[in-house]
Simulated assay, not measured.
Amino acid sequence: MPEHLLFRYILHTTLVVMSKHGGNLKISIKFALPLLSAFIVGFLGLLGVGAAQAATGSAGYYGPISGYSYNNWSEVYASSRTYAVARVRTTASSVPAGYMSANARLFLSNGTLCRETGHVYTGGAAKEFSLGTNYSGCALPSAYYGWSVTGAWNGGGYNYYYAPQSPWVNGV
């Protein structure tokens, strides 16, 4: 239920209870605790406190490279901390060890890179590989977005590709 509707419901319920008791607010503990809990949750919701956020960019595509094609994504999460995730997946059933790499990168909304993992390569055969930054370490408050780079083995080295940027989320 949207916060403004929850607040209106709580206010209406309180006024109904008051009118039934001659204007005096007399409610039992059985009714008061859920009412108080709903009020607190609604109030915190209006403030935006404690709301976990996540955003995933659209899928990128590249290949074939050494016979394999790939999709890649950029993701950003804000819950108890703000971090970015790079995700790459082959369209095949799997690729050999070392054929995929990912570099998760977290940016401030002004375009400043504030955290990245550096490229990490798959250690075994894999269908999908994802990697996240350990924490934001950036100036708060800010909006953040992820913009990952993933790589594919070309037989003699790596080709690197930017995944589409994720939408912004507010940091924690």
Rank of each mutant, 00 (worst) to 15 (best):
N72F: 01
L11Q: 13
S130H: 09
W73V: 06
G111D: 07
A104Q: 00
A55K: 06
G124V: 05
G146K: 05
L15M: 14
F107N: 03
L106Y: 06
P2F: 02
V120E: 12
S166G: 05
S69P: 02
S148R: 02
P141C: 06
I65H: 02
W153D: 00
G155Y: 03
V120C: 03
K30T: 13
Y121L: 01
G111R: 08
N170V: 12
I40W: 07
V49N: 05
Q165T: 13
N103M: 04
I27G: 02
R105I: 13
S66H: 12
L15N: 13
S19Y: 11
S58R: 12
S109E: 14
Y135N: 14
V149A: 07
S58G: 13
I40Y: 09
R89E: 15
S28E: 13
S109K: 09
T13V: 08
L46D: 06
S74Y: 04
K127T: 10
S142E: 11
A84K: 03
Y77R: 09
L35W: 10
A54L: 10
F107M: 04
R89Y: 00
M1T: 11
I29E: 12
V95M: 01
A125R: 04
S66T: 05
H21V: 03
L35H: 11
S148D: 11
L35E: 05
N72S: 15
A78K: 01
P34R: 02
T117N: 06
G146C: 04
K20S: 12
H4D: 15
Y161T: 06
Y158W: 05
V120L: 13
M100H: 02
I10E: 04
V85I: 15
V149Q: 14
G45S: 10
S166H: 04
L15D: 13
S94L: 00
Y83A: 05
Y61G: 00
L36C: 09
T56C: 04
G48S: 06
M1A: 14
G171F: 04
L46T: 13
V16K: 15
F107W: 09
G50K: 07
A126H: 03
S79T: 14
H119T: 08
A139Q: 12
P167T: 06
V85L: 10
Y62A: 12
H4E: 14
S130G: 03
T122Q: 00
N103D: 15
A97W: 00
P64D: 01
F39P: 00
Q53L: 11
G45V: 08
K20P: 00
A102V: 14
V41R: 07
Y162D: 10
G156I: 05
K20E: 15
A143M: 13
L47W: 08
G157N: 07
Y160M: 06
G67R: 02
S28Q: 06
G137M: 05
Y83F: 15
